[in-house]
Design a protein around this nucleic acid. Structure first.
Length: 827
DNA sequence: GCAAGGTC
């Protein structure tokens, strides 16, 4: 039997399909699907199926000095037992094994891991390695016709990285967490990739904090030719003889304005025209895809998750790639033709096919890992995808179109006019040839109109405006710019950069989007800068890359590299030992600062965001138990303490993070006082207890900011209906006959909306929620929805009734935590 | 309970 091992299940299926000419069938080996035809078997791994870790006796943090981890043994252990078992079972019967993992360093290591599993069971079957960079018939058949051997040096380079990352990350993470006495989930983590990334964010924040704005002025005038007006701006030559628009002195600005206002005409001094070619963009690699999706409003992780769904469904190629050059065996014309008949893209594809020749653009990076992201000939109908998925799919299709389209041509027109010794300029631009913009509408094609004037011509000055401005602090990194910067610095990989950002959010290091660092993040970066500079610098990756290259080239061994790295970490721990307490205190202060609102109105100690034993959040006093002052917080989402401070109480405002239901709660003391001041408004009989006890329904505002319709006999009667948190609620004269309650109207923003009878409203809402499509849940695409339906879950209402762990076991790609998030969302 | 790297 010939066994073929691939890196992922999808690749196994497609390779089996190609090599068997479509005759392969599936069989189960344990719980794993394997493809077979004749004497061949193809099994797909799931990336790494074994991982490195310390032996069991190092697992308890309290029993081991973090510094001991530096010299602790490192073991390989299966992380995906079912797949490991299946590989071993197949290996026993194999006469020959072919490793067909991805064509990159990590693929070589994953291949070696498979090789070692095979060798545990089978001493003598020959093991070959095939390499191909896209799963197309030609490449795959060619690779299998010319098998090679595993590159053990290259795999060892990857193993060295695993060991160095584990030792540094685990030892320093434990050191920081233990010194700050952080237990449980709230450990303080550092690592070769996450900490330099965090430093980028922290350093930008330092620049913003240190920024001192400066006033300046800009002077504009409208010039007109026969009533045809356009905007021009005053400029001058500064001391370096460069053109400048900003006027730094207010008196100078006023003088120039006065002069200009006294003039009614300006004479055209020069007119220059030039045309500029605007080349179409390069094919998508992961980073550029994330950036483009980011400009459509998708967060990096969300964009990748949608792309993975589209890939699994077969609509686009593999979304994790560094490559920006299409492979030779992609025939763009052929692919375009498959779009020519579609309703969504037919006319654009047809117009592209009219070109004399089709020559796709090329980016700077040509790699062997995977082709650039492009659509496959397998096209979905619009109805097959959710709205978000369609947007991302269309982006990928149109990017492919753009890469085979013509350049655009812009015409620039610069006019300089002079009056009373002052010069005014206008820069016009016009899109003369739309080129690729016609099929790729994601870039701006805004034009700026400046009429055709000629030198010596007189223009009238219509309107003079002096604008006072101030210099702006540097902008925070957005998610996609962070990912681009990580790529430029060489930290992380195409597959992990967006995960690193999510990790920083989860660890409480960054908040909001664009991300801002917490006090804790600043303290961690400061501690690392002072004591373990290497872990916070992007150079650690650069140095490690150089060492890995040396291993791959046979110039160094894994042992040499990991020993050097251990020595460096030993030296860091020698210094850290003396400062343990100091570091711990600083981290603890920062942790507290992130949760501090301001002075307690009763005792003056700090008010802090705390969590009750049941898990709900509230505001409590640091003087507890002497001071028992508390304030409630809303019961949805996770609280974040903002920098904005309430003027009345000197307390920082609170924001509740709850996905798309995120909102700013404000000062919790103001909210509580507002609720105390707001009278309950009675609207009608309580359906539960009016007949028996005379209870009535009232619109109530709770101290945590929630608003509801509840019974006046609360807590004896707990009947309640939810109401929106925001907006003024008007009680109208129209009555619901069924419930004997007035119709309500909510005034929030411009358009008031009719909520109607609160009971009818709630019943409708509950029914809708109950039967809502699975796709309305966060992160559920058609693939996941299909799998959920297979497991007997058809609606959002059904999700509420399942056991999260059971469902996670049944449905591939869904974790129990995800299910719990859906359930919380549905409440 | 630690990292980063695969993949779902």
């Amino acid at each position: 039997m010939e066994l073929i091992v691939t890196e992922k299940h999808n690749a196994a299926r497609r390779i089996a399909d190609i090599l068997s000419d479509g005759s392969a069938t599936t069989e189960r080996v344990g719980s794993v699907d394997v493809y077979r035809w004749g004497t061949h078997r193809v099994i797909g791994l799931s990336g790494h199926v074994v991982g490195v870790d310390f032996p069991e006796e190092y697992a308890e943090w309290r029993d081991v000095e973090p510094a001991e981890l530096v010299h602790a043994p490192v073991q390989k252990r299966p992380t995906q037992d079912d797949i490991v078992r299946a590989v071993k079972r197949l290996a026993r019967k194999a006469d020959e094994v072919v490793i067909a993992t991805d064509y990159d360093r990590e693929g070589e290591l994953i291949g070696k891991e498979a090789y070692e599993l095979v060798r545990e069971e089978n001493d003598d079957a020959p093991v070959h390695r095939v390499r191909f960079s896209s799963i197309t018939e030609n490449e795959v058949k060619d690779a299998f016709a010319n098998p090679d051997d595993l590159d053990f040096d290259l795999a060892a380079a990857g193993e060295a990285r695993q060991i160095v990352d584990l030792i540094w990350g685990a030892a320093l993470t434990r050191f920081l967490s233990l010194s700050a006495q952080q237990r449980g989930e709230d450990f303080i983590s550092v690592g070769r990739v996450q900490t330099p990334t965090l430093r980028l964010i922290v350093e930008k924040e330092r620049e913003i904090d240190a920024f001192d704005p400066e006033d300046y002025w800009e002077l504009f005038a409208d010039l007109a030719k026969n009533g045809d007006a356009f905007e021009a701006q005053y400029f001058y030559r500064d001391e370096d003889d460069t053109e400048a628009e900003r006027i730094w002195d207010e008196a100078d600005a006023k003088t120039a304005t006065d002069i200009l206002e006294d003039e009614s005409q300006a004479v055209v001094e020069s007119v220059s025209r030039r045309t500029r070619t605007d080349d179409p963009p390069a094919p998508f690699n992961t980073t550029q895809f994330i950036r483009a999706a980011g400009s459509l409003g998708f967060a990096a992780g969300r964009a990748m998750s949608i792309a993975e769904d589209l890939y699994t469904a077969g609509y686009i190629t593999y979304p994790r790639t560094d490559n920006t050059v299409y492979p030779d065996d992609l025939d763009p014309e052929e692919l375009l033709e498959t779009f020519a008949e579609t309703s969504a893209f037919g006319s654009d594809a047809s117009s592209l096919l009219e070109a004399d020749s089709i020559e796709p653009t090329r980016g700077d990076t040509e790699t062997t890992d995977h082709p650039p992201i492009h659509p496959t000939p397998d096209q979905p109908d619009r109805g097959d995808l959710t709205e978000d998925e369609w947007q991302v799919y269309e982006l990928v299709v149109r990017r492919f179109f753009a890469t085979v389209a013509e350049p655009a041509v812009w015409e620039h027109l610069r006019v300089v006019a002079e009056t009373a010794g002052l010069r005014l300029k206008a820069n016009g631009k016009r899109l003369r040839e739309p080129g690729y913009h016609q099929v790729y509408p994601y870039f701006s094609t805004d034009e700026n109109y400046v009429p055709d004037v000629s030198e010596g011509e007189t223009l009238s000055i219509e309107d003079v405006r002096l604008e006072d401005k101030e210099t702006q602090p540097p902008r925070r990194y957005g998610q996609s710019r962070l990912i681009e910067t990580m790529e430029d610095l060489g930290i992380g990989t195409k597959s992990t950069r967006h995960n690193t950002l999510e990790k920083l959010y989860d660890r409480g290091y960054i908040e909001e989007d664009p991300p801002r660092p917490t006090r804790l993040a600043r303290a961690v970066v400061e501690a690392a800068e002072e004591f373990a500079d290497l872990i916070v610098s992007e150079e650690m990756t650069g140095e490690l890359e150089a060492e890995m290259t040396a291993i791959a080239n046979g110039e160094k061994t894994l042992e040499e590299v990991t020993e050097d790295s251990r020595d460096a970490l030993d030296r860091i721990f020698a210094e850290l030992a003396e400062s343990r307490e100091e570091i711990g205190e600083h981290l603890q202060e920062s942790l507290k600062a992130d949760k501090t609102l301001g002075p307690c109105p009763e005792c003056g100690e700090d008010l802090l965001v705390r969590q009750s034993r049941q898990g709900s959040y509230f505001v409590g006093c640091d003087g507890y138990p002497d001071c028992r002052f508390t304030l409630p917080l809303p019961n949805t989402g996770e609280p974040v303490v903002l920098d904005e401070t309430c003027e009345e109480h000197g307390l920082r405002e609170v924001k509740m993070l709850a996905g798309r239901n995120t909102f700013v709660h404000g000062c919790p003391l103001c909210k509580a006082e507002e609720a105390d001041d707001e009278e309950d408004r009675i609207i009608g009989p309580c359906p539960e207890c009016h007949d028996e006890h005379g209870g009535e329904l009232a619109i109530k505002r709770l101290r945590n900011g929630n608003r509801l319709v509840g019974c006046t006999r609360y807590p004896d009667c707990e009947y309640s209906l939810p109401l929106p948190r925001r907006g003024e609620i008007e009680i109208t004269d129209e009555y619901c006959e069924e419930h004997d309650l007035p119709e309500l109207v909510v005034h929030d923003g411009d358009e008031p909306w009719e909520l109607g009878c609160p009971i009818c409203n709630y019943e409708e809402y509950a029914a809708e929620r109950e039967s809502a499509d699975l796709e309305s849940l966060d992160g559920v695409g058609p693939t996941t929805a299909e799998r959920l339906r297979d497991a007997g879950v058809d609606t959002v209402g059904d999700v509420a009734d399942v056991d999260p762990d059971d469902l996670a076991d049944q449905v591939k790609g869904v974790s129990a935590d995800t299910v719990r998030e859906w359930q919380a969302d549905a409440d």
